Structures are given as structure tokens and as C-alpha cells.
Amino acid sequence: MFETFRKSLFNLKQNRLFEFFVITVIIISALEIGAKTYDLSPTSLLVTKYLDVFITLFFLFEITVRFVSEENKKDFFKSGWNIFDTAVVVISLIPINESEMALLARLIRIFRVLRMISIIPELRILINSLLEALPRLGYVVLLMFIIFYIYAAVGSFLFQDINPVLWGNIAISMLTLFRVMTFEDWTDIQYETMEVYPMSWIFYMTFIFFTAFAFLNMVIGIVVGVMDEEMHKERLKSEPSMNELQDQIQDIRGQIQVLIDRDKKE
């Protein structure tokens, strides 16, 4: 009896219309959160209140469906996304009126928008790729920090008297270089120092080449490579393994042999 009920919930979870409805509710939840940042009329506030109750209860129903439909309940909590969804849903059940946890509950309701990632596989691949790429990006970030530090020290020594606000010390110089790297009015900084040091353009050109071009392309290459690996893993999960293919071939051979034996008897 329970197994039949579980399979029914599993079919519901896999249903495309149900997934689309979940995504729609998440979008409505995001719009409802945004609407609360405006000055609303009492009627609108009442509508958002009841809408919030509906969204909370629906998310509770949806996470229950996913948990009950799981054949092995322990596997459900092996997924970080399932743990995140469960935490968001449980904390969303905290009453937000006249409670010391009101602020926390409101903040958690904002994070319900992130449930879109756990529902859409393509978004999960993007986030998982980014998380997998972080350890590899650490060395690039370290190398970039070294370049920043060297150029900030040079810039502070050379340009401190020209503009102490931008080059007063090494920390401020690093902030100025970050502005240069992001191309935020960096030419104004360059022309200001070129009035005293005409060849200072070499300082900026080499720094931009190292940071904005070389290191940025390294970061993109690492992320794209990891993303390709994650997509390959997802394809392997969806494709049958060699053992499964062999089992299917054996089943087909067995069925063919049964048919051959039946024809011989007839």
C-alpha cells in the first residue's frame, strides 16, 4: 500500500506540469517578496499575507512529496540542495508576527527564490561547476593578489605625492588598482600621473594586461572546463552503465530464446 503511494508521489514529482507549477510558485514568491518593499494598501497587504501562507504550505507539500517519494530516505539528505530546501521550508514555518525570530524568518523567505536552482537541473550544474572551480581558482586568486600587491607598492611609492587620496598607502593603492582593473574612469587616474611621469602609462597598460586580460581568461577557462566536466557527469548519470546494458542484452536474449523454444514446440 505504502509502496504504491510512494510510486504515485514519485510520478507526481517527475511530472513536467508539477515541476512547472513549482517554478511558477517560486517566481510568484519572488514577486511577492519584492512587492512588500513598496508601500502597499491594506487590501494589498492582506493579499500578500494570504499569498505567503499559500506559498509556505505549498513548499511544505512539495518537499514532503520529494521526501516520501525517495526510495531510500537517507539518500534524500545526501544532497546539499535537499538539505537547503528543507531548511528554508522549515524556517519559513516560523510565524513572522510578534516573534523574536521575525527578522530571521523574513530573511529566510527571501532565500526561497534560490529554490529555483534546486528545481532546474541546468542551474544546479552552473552552481556546482562554480563550487567545484573554487579550489582551482584559489591559485589564480593568489597570483592575482601578488600582482596587485607589487603594483600597489610601486604605485604608492611613485604616485603618493600626486594624489594621496588614491595612492596614500598600499591598501588604498590596491583599491585604486581594482578600479583600474574594472575600467571605472581609469583614464582619469592615468592622465593625472602622466602629467608628472609621462611614461607611467606603461604601469597601467601592463597591470591591465595581467589582471583584466590574462587572469580573467584563466578564470573563464577554469570555470568552463569544470562546467564541461559537470555536464559530462550528468550525461553519464542519465545514460545506462555498461552493466545495465549487459543486463538488458541478457534480458533480450532470454526473451528471444523463449520465443525460439516456443516456435520449436509448436
Rank of each mutant, 00 (worst) to 15 (best):
Q257P: 01
L143Q: 13
Q257R: 05
S200D: 07
F183L: 13
H232P: 06
L236W: 06
K265W: 03
L143E: 10
T187I: 14
S129P: 07
V180H: 11
D75T: 10
R235T: 01
I146G: 01
F210N: 05
S129E: 10
F21L: 15
M242A: 11
G34A: 06
T43Y: 10
Q160R: 08
I189H: 11
P121D: 05
S173G: 04
F145S: 03
S118V: 00
L131P: 02
F207L: 02
D188K: 15
L137Q: 05
V154I: 12
P198Q: 13
V68I: 14
I208E: 03
V154N: 04
K13F: 12
D247W: 14
Y38D: 09
E239N: 10
V223A: 14
I127K: 08
I202D: 04
I256S: 02
T24K: 10
E70W: 00
T206M: 12
N128L: 10
L40D: 09
P135V: 08
L104H: 00
Y139S: 07
L175R: 11
F145D: 02
F21D: 07
L236K: 15
M194Y: 06
V90P: 05
F59P: 02
R109V: 04
N163L: 10
I117A: 04
M205V: 12
Q250H: 09
N169M: 02
I189P: 00
I172F: 08
L60K: 05
T193M: 08
E192A: 15
P135K: 01
F54G: 02
T176E: 08
F61R: 08
L134A: 10
E229H: 11
R16Q: 14
L143H: 11
R262D: 12
F159E: 02
L166K: 15
I28K: 06
G34P: 00
R235D: 09
D251C: 09
L175Q: 15
I117D: 01
L40Q: 12
E70S: 11
I23K: 14
T86L: 12
L131F: 09
M199P: 06
I119G: 03
L114T: 04
F77S: 05
D161Y: 10
S238A: 15
T182D: 11
R16G: 14
S200W: 04
S29E: 07
I146M: 05
N217C: 06
F59G: 08
P121E: 05
N128Y: 10
L158D: 04
F183S: 05
F210A: 06
